[in-house]
Amino acid sequence: MIRVLFICHGNICRSPMAEFVLKDMVKKRGLEDEFYIESAATSTEEIWHGVGNPVYPPARAKLREHGIGTSDNELGVSEKRARQTVCGDYEKFDYIIGMDSANMRNMQRIYGGDPENKVYKMLDFAGRSADVADPWYTGNFDATWNDVVDGCNGLISKVIGATT
């Protein structure tokens, strides 16, 4: 089983988009039994009294626009709640993927480093060293969608190539 954790600041936009895009890609390839995919935050800003906020409505709308989170391809979008990553996630996952440079710094702090080389930046899988566009600030969910799809395509190609 290949275990993937996507990380962003609040776990309501970018990382859940990546989680559900990859789940959709895996499902379309018939590989659901070979992957375990989650997302989390580096902060607690979207978690109140122990309960995380749901996926941000414009992010959900962008997923639905592409057939994800719909009644026939729900994939858990409606149940998703923000959670903060914890040190124990480092042992649980094979790939821990941050959306931007700030996420990468925070992940290093939370995990106490990366001795097993499990931590990656999302767009490294797309051959780019850029950050995934943050729609919370830009309002541009199309740019985020494109970045997430590029990163997930690169990740699945790397993983499938490594397992075949």
Rank of each mutant, 00 (worst) to 15 (best):
L31D: 01
G161V: 01
N73Y: 00
L75W: 02
K27R: 15
M1V: 12
P115F: 04
A61R: 15
D94F: 11
E79W: 04
Y90D: 06
D94Q: 12
K80P: 03
N73S: 05
Y95F: 15
M17C: 04
D100V: 07
G10V: 12
R128H: 10
W136H: 15
A41V: 06
A59E: 02
N103P: 09
D89G: 07
Y111T: 02
F93D: 08
W48C: 06
H49E: 15
I47Q: 05
D147S: 07
D150Y: 04
I110S: 10
P135H: 05
V86W: 01
L155G: 03
R128G: 00
M1K: 13
D89Q: 09
R109A: 13
I37M: 05
I47Y: 03
T163P: 00
A133F: 01
K62M: 15
P135R: 03
E46V: 00
H66I: 09
G161W: 00
W145L: 11
I160R: 07
N11E: 09
R83A: 11
K80G: 02
L123G: 05
S129F: 01
F6C: 08
V21Q: 01
L63E: 07
T42I: 14
L75G: 02
P54D: 03
P57L: 06
C8R: 10
D72R: 12
S39K: 07
G98W: 02
C13S: 06
K27H: 08
A59P: 03
